[in-house]
């Protein structure tokens, strides 16, 4: 796995590079702004880019815009965004259109080494990983929608699904059997009026699409 890291804080950039090294991931380049990121992707053809949302020169959302551009020009490139705070609209923008291999995490999550490396691998394998805070925001905005008809347990399952966990992962987190997880998922899909879908990734996308399209108001 070949990775380019785009992060303007030198300290954190080095920390991330070291972290990848521990996880046996090859860091082909580390850059400090969006322009260098675009150049580096052209030159090094990585499998994954890890990008900070806020970068020079304006420190607003340069990283995100660069990532969106890369997703259009390099459909096979996996993207993991890191941010000081999460913003559901950033997630929505990232997930629009090409939905393969996207992740969006709070910077703090980097400190949990094993989980972070897991998330990286999931994204490179074409999966999605969303920060629990993003998922919470996506859920909270559904004013008066079918989401409110879900039981608390179903909401928990839905959150974990949206974060990108597999059935097994959900079962482990909630101490449920695989059968029970499948039953909850089936019930969620029925209540939301979504067609049942066996493939894990497509299922997550269906849910995210639902959350997105039944957005505010």
């Amino acid at each position: 796995m070949r990775v380019v890291i785009a992060e303007d804080s030198v300290l954190l950039r080095e920390g991330l590079a070291r972290l990848m090294e521990v996880g046996g991931i090859e860091v082909v380049d580390t850059v400090g702004d969006a322009e260098q990121l675009l150049r580096s992707v052209e030159r090094d053809c990585p499998d994954l880019v890890v990008v900070d949302v806020r970068m020079p020169p304006d420190h607003s959302d340069e990283g995100l815009r660069a990532a969106l551009m890369l997703r259009r020009t390099h459909p096979d490139l996996a993207v993991l965004m890191l941010s000081q705070y999460v913003e559901e609209r950033y997630a929505v923008e990232l997930l629009t259109g090409q939905n393969r291999g996207v992740g969006y995490l709070l910077k703090d999550r980097v400190a949990d080494v094993a989980e972070f490396l897991d998330a990286l691998r999931r994204v490179v394998d074409g999966g999605t990983t969303l920060d629990p805070e993003v998922v919470a925001q996506l859920l909270v905005r559904r004013d008066g929608s079918e989401i409110e008809r879900l039981t608390p347990r179903e909401r928990e399952v839905l959150s974990l699904m949206a974060e990108g966990h597999s059935n097994g992962g959900i079962g482990q987190a909630l101490f449920l059997s695989d059968g029970a997880v499948s039953k909850h998922i089936h019930s969620i899909f029925t209540k939301l009026g979504l067609p049942p879908n066996e493939s894990h990734n497509r299922r997550v996308l269906a849910i995210l699409k639902y959350l997105r399209e039944n957005g505010k108001d």
Binding site: L19, Q84, V110, A111, V113
Partner: peptide, 22 residues
């Protein structure tokens, strides 16, 4: 705080995490 302490402590937590894992 964002440019200073937050970045430093994030890096610190990452490094401690790496040390703990290795």
């Amino acid at each position: 705080l964002h440019d200073g302490a937050q970045q430093r402590i994030t890096a610190l937590a990452v490094n401690l995490g790496i040390a703990r894992a290795t």
